[in-house]
Computed example of a mutant assay.
Amino acid sequence: MKIIHSIQELRKELYMRRFDKERISFVPTMGNLHEGHISLIHKAAEKGDCVVASIFVNPLQFGANEDLESYPRTPEQDEAQLLATGCVDFLFRPRVEEIYPVGQENHTVVEVPNISDVYCGASRPGHFRGVATIVCKLLNIVQPDFAIFGRKDYQQLMVIEKMVEDLCLPVKVIGADTARAKDGLALSSRNGYLTSDERQCAPALYKALQEAKEVILSGQADFKGIQARANHALEQAGFKPDYFDICNAKTLEPALRSDQELVILAAAYLGKARLIDNIVISLTPAEEE
């Protein structure tokens, strides 16, 4: 694994790989890696001949009162984990000045309309503008054949897919299943903010999603009632709910009774941590063989 800090050097290395007809897979991260990230690396290795990972804590996607300065950074452990996979050819670790040479305030930004403004976008104004901008930049720097993202960040994945489609970027975006702890908690770098007591409560978020899914699969379609009961259950478990919404899985619009493909998006605060999760529901009858 070769560690690279400059755009020019990475492009030079990848030019040679393309010359050799290698397919390039890319996994962008913000570091503080866990098993979920490593599962993305293995997925990338399945798809491509050359695997590129990046670690960059993107200041453009953090709001004024968010945790940019305190966001966990574990560079030595991250490098060791990536090296241990035996899959990563290049680790791109640029400085902020390399990515935003004229400063963030004077930098062109990428805005994905509508789906960026709801749920996490409403709670964190400007967040998805920062995400879309850095992902677009990284995809243009790496120019991969495949880019791998986790489905835990369902709305983020949809923002990226729409950006790639709208801007005609020549990359296939692949969503990978959410990696979870044995008790169901979705793996996240922000889980490190949880105290030991909060960590014991945290699986209640996924439990609420599972229970809501079962109710919907049983035939109930009182979505507002289901959402209200879930929010109450989360409050009882010690959470401060941000949102718990049943949506059309393709558009993220509030779900209608006629919708067949649904996703429940949830975000809630538990102490200092803001946890997000989701669960997908298909109401389409399975075809008989």
Rank of each mutant, 00 (worst) to 15 (best):
E287P: 02
P170K: 12
P94D: 07
E46S: 04
P254A: 02
Y206K: 05
V215A: 08
C50K: 00
V164T: 13
S123A: 15
A208S: 14
V88S: 08
I264W: 04
I55K: 00
F149N: 06
A228P: 00
Q200H: 02
L157W: 05
C50V: 14
I24P: 00
S218E: 08
L217E: 08
T108V: 07
R180P: 00
A45T: 07
V164K: 12
Q220F: 04
S188T: 10
L185V: 07
A233Y: 03
Q155E: 11
V118Y: 09
Y193E: 04
Q156H: 06
R18D: 01
E79M: 14
R257D: 02
V280F: 09
R257N: 06
L60F: 04
L60Y: 05
A230M: 02
H37T: 06
L252R: 02
L82R: 06
E9M: 13
R151F: 11
E46L: 04
Q104F: 04
Q200N: 11
Q104Y: 09
V109Y: 08
E66I: 12
P101V: 12
P254I: 02
E287V: 15
Y100A: 09
M163S: 13
H5Q: 12
H34A: 11
C50G: 01
S25K: 03
G175D: 10
H127R: 08
T29H: 09
I4G: 12
Y71K: 15
C247L: 15
P203Q: 01
L82P: 06
Q210T: 09
I115A: 08
D183K: 11
Y193H: 02
C247E: 05
K224G: 10
I174P: 04
R11F: 01
C120S: 14
E165R: 15
R17F: 09
E69H: 11
I246S: 02
D67K: 14
